[in-house]
């Protein structure tokens, strides 16, 4: 039986199992393999500017995928991350461009808007017992519609807020080390990853996130207020979407109200490639980050190689299935 090894060598194997390090190793080596292959295939791939472009392209999907990771670990799903991101961007636009308020208020407003929307989703799921798939599908459409209504269906530009584009496009690192102009958007992605990793690993909220996905009934029987924590997870995921909204708005210097639908699937793909189980209980932010990187490295590399767009889509689909199949094989062998 497989449990025997676990019991005889608990320290080592348990450590690998709990952290999902093995899968991360797998995903990580996949990422390295992609980098090597593309570098060999084109001299233009491993250029500073292109690497920065890849990272920049990862930032929004990466942050969204981190939000999705939180919810997926609880055994739920959040289809509204994409349009919630847009909604938060529009709220920032309302605060900064329509109302002309200072930048920090716009940032705060976007994140709070995300938190509030997450609270609503969480409450619908926990209290009204609407399945997450349906609840967030509804929220996806509600938020999409609200974004169009609030913005008057036109993009809101941030031309009156000069510092706004700096949120994603400026480079704090570049101002210190000119040779390394890493955009702030990338910095924010890693910052969000670190914070959420920390919350998942070190705080009660993180512990309950895993516990809920593992066995919700057991958590309830342990006397934990399950509903409250579930709502908290969705709210946290919502605020992460708020950050994504700021990133995309800053990158485009505008809040594009029609954008966002379809982005939830890319986010979920990154989560799955990163080894988080859709059935809940297992997952890591680092894995998701690697998953998001794999998706953008793949897209970028295939473009650099001038692969026709039709085939790029086919290859991405293959990689998603391969990644999950590798995970299934791993678990069967262990």
């Amino acid at each position: 039986m497989d449990s025997i090894s676990t019991e005889t060598k608990p320290g080592l194997i348990a450590g690998i199992r709990t952290s999902g390090a093995f899968h991360k190793l797998l995903a990580f080596s996949g990422l390295i393999a992609l980098l090597v292959v593309f570098s060999l295939a084109s001299p233009n791939f491993m250029q500073t500017q292109n690497v920065l472009a890849i990272l920049q392209a990862t930032s929004v999907n990466g942050v969204l995928a981190i939000a999705a990771t939180l919810v997926i670990i609880t055994g739920g799903i959040d289809l509204s991350v994409g349009t919630l991101m847009t909604f938060c961007a529009v709220i920032a636009g309302v605060i900064l461009t329509f109302l002309g308020l200072p930048l920090p208020l716009g940032v705060l407003g976007a994140i709070l808007a995300g938190t509030a929307a997450g609270l609503v989703s969480g409450t619908i799921i926990a209290k009204l017992k609407v399945p997450p798939f349906i609840a967030t599908l509804g929220m996806m459409l509600i938020l999409k519609g609200l974004s169009l209504v609030i913005s008057g269906t036109r993009p809101i530009y941030f031309n009156d807020t000069p510092g706004f584009t700096q949120i994603a496009q400026g480079s704090l690192i570049g101002s210190i080390i000119p040779a390394l102009p890493v955009p702030n958007g990338v910095l924010i992605l890693f910052l969000v990853a670190a914070v959420i990793s920390f919350i998942l690993g070190k705080t009660a909220l993180g512990r309950y996130t895993f516990a809920l996905g593992s066995n919700e009934e057991a958590v309830r029987l342990s006397g934990v207020n399950v509903d409250r924590w579930k709502i908290a997870v969705y709210a946290l995921a919502g605020s992460v979407c708020g950050v994504a909204g700021l990133l995309i708005a800053s990158r485009l210097n505008s809040a594009q109200p029609a954008l966002g639908q379809g982005y939830e699937l890319d986010a979920i793909a990154a989560v799955v490639i990163g080894g988080t189980s859709l059935s809940g209980g297992r997952g890591t932010v680092l894995g998701t980050l690697i998953g998001a990187l794999i998706i953008s490295v793949l897209a970028n590399g295939l473009r650099i190689l001038s692969v026709a767009q039709e085939w790029q889509t086919v290859v991405t689909g293959c990689i998603i299935i391969l990644a999950v199949y590798a995970d299934i094989l791993r678990r069967r062998n262990l």
């Binding site: 084109s42 233009n44 791939f45 250029q47 500017q49 292109n50 472009a53 920049q56 392209a57 929004v60 995309i248 990158r251 485009l252 505008s254 594009q256 029609a258 954008l259 966002g260 639908q261 379809g262 953008s296 897209a299 970028n300 473009r303 650099i304 001038s306 767009q309």
Partner: peptide
Amino acid sequence: FEGPDTEAQVDRQIDMLAAALAR
């Protein structure tokens, strides 16, 4: 020749332009 799936995906188009430039 490349283009995003829908005309709403502004950021995807930007990523395509960036990758094209890197080429």
